[in-house]
Write a protein that binds this DNA or RNA. Structure first.
Length: 491
RNA sequence: CGGGGAGUAGCGCAGGCCGGUAGCGUACCUGGUUUGGGACCAGGUGGUCGCAGGUUCGAAUCCUGUCUCCCCGACCA
């Protein structure tokens, strides 16, 4: 498994593929566009799930599960929604196979055609709202705050590991509220949950914003998002939260009686993040030696590598390592002892760097004699000798330092690669010479946004929520504008 | 879905034009020496050449179809 990665400079896309494959996160599968998430990658996702799940529950949500298969007719109940998803739906048409009478294995049994075809969910609004209709009668039934962890399928033309696959894992929250204001608040609350998660756990700074009409979710009144900047200067949408207004309530006739005995349609939200976050994590932090994982999410936070000469020294080191392991575990730190005799220390160092383990402790006889250990941090590759007394405290602190340093580094990168431009020339030149986020004036029309996309491939990622109002002129049309919006080329 | 490239041992590749029964590096197994940044020596295992058809006495090699991956484009919350 001698593996040298393609460098970011050589070929960024290939570097990303190399990291995902050689870092043991995922593998290609026999099915077009679908990937296998390997144990190490899945462990990362599980850590993300655990944190998010707790955040959802702390904000009052409960988990439930709705079917994978959705009657085809449901999709067309909401006009914008069907428009947005129809082109990428997998359709189930039959429910049985049979032996090929001509001996060619199994074939679809033509007699087992479904009366109504089923689609595999690309998202679950329709099946969920058809159900909510039966759950909501009174304002006392509201708010309805539900999340589901699920897989979805979207028949994408071009796929990339974690970033865009045909089937992917995600969570989707679907809530119903008595008032517009309450639903808007929920939409914003969950956006904040996502932003907090990205920044505090993934060490990934994000811009909170609202999407333009062009980029809005099919069926939403407003789509909020968090946008992150990757190391190649391209933007990645890391999470979305939608205010759905009464669109789905009307499409599925979900009404309730308020305190004054008036009937009204409920107000809705939906919000989701997916395994795409794993891709974001890779592209935001990793280097040419492999993954760099933030300590809070890393499946293994600390790895201990013994350096021994012969079995008796190995034994002696094992004893010391056990003490250190116990002290680290007592603090809830995920630690692994790599005492495998089949590979030598240099190999192990490279391997754990490839897999992004935040901290490595190397321990040899020389160290034990001096009551010390060599501690290496993955993010900076610095090596420091620590006294073994109190090493667990020191490592605990180091993990916090790494988490903070990773965020600061990513933030500094984003700051350095966010440019304000004031003219079309400057806009085009910046996209070419210094890719990243670009803040520029836009006249607010979908036509102009479309034209800019056509000319440059850059899209409006969002209108930042904390935007200051500022008079200016649209970089393309020169028409008056009241604020800058965030442009970038995106994944 | 259009254009280009690729699929031969776990991984990386050669062989293919010119058909003759598959090779290199690495990994793996055994034994020994080793172990502070991807160890060394010796011996060994492993492949219906992506899959399915066809041509041929004979196909990794030629022909047809098909699947998957990569790059570019179109597409895309």
């Amino acid at each position: 498994m001698s593996s040298t990665l393609t460098t970011r400079q050589q070929d960024y896309a290939q570097w990303y593929n190399d990291i995902v494959l050689k870092g043991g996160l995922a593998d290609y599968s026999a099915v077009r566009g679908c990937m296998v998430i390997k144990p190490y990658g899945y462990a990362l996702w599980e850590n993300m799930q655990a944190v998010l799940d707790k955040m959802f529950k702390d904000t009052g949500h409960q988990n439930a599960y709705f079917p994978l298969l959705i009657p085809k007719s449901f999709l067309s109940r909401e006009a914008a929604h069907v428009e947005g998803f129809a082109k990428e739906c997998a359709v189930v048409t039959h429910y049985r196979l049979k032996n090929d009478p001509n001996g060619g294995g199994v074939i679809v049994d033509p007699e087992a055609k479904l009366e109504e075809e089923l689609i595999i969910r690309p998202t679950s609004e329709t099946i969920i709202w058809s159900t909510y209709k039966n759950w909501v009668q009174s304002y006392r039934d509201l708010p309805l705050l539900i999340n589901q962890w699920a897989n979805v399928v979207r028949w994408e033309m071009r796929t990339r590991l974690f970033l865009r696959t045909t089937e992917f894992l995600w969570q989707e929250g679907h809530t119903a509220h008595a008032t517009r204001q309450e639903a808007v608040e929920e939409t914003r609350r969950m956006l904040d949950v996502y932003a907090t998660f990205a920044e505090e756990y993934m060490a990934l700074p994000v811009v909170r914003g609202v999407k333009t009409a062009n980029e809005r979710f099919a069926g939403a009144e407003d789509t909020y998002c968090i946008e992150a900047l990757m190391q190649d200067g391209k933007a990645l949408q890391a999470g979305t939260s939608h205010f759905l207004g009464q669109n789905f309530a009307k499409a599925f006739d979900v009404q309730f009686t308020d305190k004054h005995n008036n009937m009204d349609y409920v107000w809705a939200t939906s919000w989701g993040v997916s395994t795409r976050l794993v891709g974001a994590l890779v592209m935001a932090h990793s280097d040419d030696n492999g993954l760099i994982l933030p300590p809070k999410l890393a499946p293994v936070q600390v790895v201990i590598v013994p350096i021994y000469k012969g079995p008796e020294s190995h034994e002696r080191i094992n004893g010391k390592v056990n003490e250190i392991m116990n002290a680290l575990k007592a603090k809830g730190i995920r630690v692994k002892y790599d005492s495998d005799d089949a590979t030598r220390p240099g190999w192990k160092f490279a391997e754990h760097e490839l897999r992004g383990v935040p901290v490595r402790i190397a321990l040899g006889l020389r160290d034990i004699d001096n009551n010390q250990g060599e501690v290496a941090r993955r993010d900076t590759k610095e090596k420091t000798v620590y006294p073994l007394d109190g090493i667990a405290d020191a490592v605990e602190q180091l993990l916090k330092d790494i988490q903070a340093a990773m965020f600061q580094k990513a933030l500094a990168y984003r700051t350095d690669n966010t440019t304000e431009v004031n003219s079309w020339d400057e806009f085009v030149r910046t996209l070419d010479e210094k890719p990243g986020f670009i803040l520029a004036h836009w006249d607010g029309t979908p036509a102009t946004e479309e034209k800019i996309k056509e000319l440059t491939k850059a899209t409006i990622r969002c209108i930042p929520l904390d935007n200051k109002l500022e008079d200016g002129k649209c970089i393309l049309t020169g028409a008056p504008s009241i604020q800058r919006v965030l442009f970038a080329r995106a994944y």
